[in-house]
């Protein structure tokens, strides 16, 4: 009987490793940035390329940095939510236009609405790399002192916003 259990034992061992391996996926690992100062940047404004906009302009505010691109289909999913947030003036949102072309990005905002206080161009994706962006969209919540408090990978869902992000935003805004 025991020898017929050997295959099962082998399988359980492999299974255990696969299960642990799954947990190691880099996408699931919390960003090492949480609790650290956000990388600083100064980039050209999407709507007025000659004027610059940088992290110091948001000092003293709680704000969202939303990484998006016109070529990103999943960005469309979260976009109505961002537009709503902007209308209610819940929190200022800065858009980091990642590896995109200016005319396409502007056309996209015209079509779907512009939720951004300011949108900046990160054409070569350098700032995205500084922020450790794995894919688009990603959203960072940054507090008054310029420290990253939360990072959301993928499109923000209503649920994620209401359950995870909004309470944190309220708390940070009070402090």
């Amino acid at each position: 009987m025991t020898k017929f259990l050997l295959p099962l034992g082998g399988f359980i061992a492999i299974f255990a490793f696969l299960f642990i391996g799954l947990g190691l996926n880099p996408r699931e690992v919390p960003s090492p940035f949480i609790g650290k100062a956000a990388p600083t940047f100064e980039l050209g404004n999407l709507h007025r390329p000659d004027s610059r906009f940088g992290t110091q302009d948001m000092a003293g505010k709680v704000w969202l940095l939303n990484v998006w691109a016109s070529w990103c289909v999943a960005c469309r999913d979260e976009h109505p939510l961002l537009v709503d947030l902007a209308k209610q003036d819940t929190i200022p949102i800065v858009g980091l236009n990642y590896k995109d072309k200016q005319d396409q990005a502007l056309a996209w905002l015209k079509q779907f609405g512009n939720p951004y206080r300011v949108a900046v161009m990160d054409a070569d994706g350098r700032i995205g790399i500084d922020f450790g962006v794995y894919g688009v969209p990603e959203t960072f919540l940054i507090d008054k002192k310029g420290i990253i408090r939360f990072k959301h990978i993928g499109p923000i869902t209503k649920k994620a916003w209401e359950e995870k992000m909004l309470p944190l935003v309220r708390e940070l805004q009070k402090s």
Partner: peptide, 24 residues
Amino acid sequence: DPKRGVFILIFLAIVTGGSLVLFA
């Protein structure tokens, strides 16, 4: 996508684990 991985892994556990138990 890791979530898909979890599903397939559970499925693998049921299919392979179950049949190996039956085998034993």
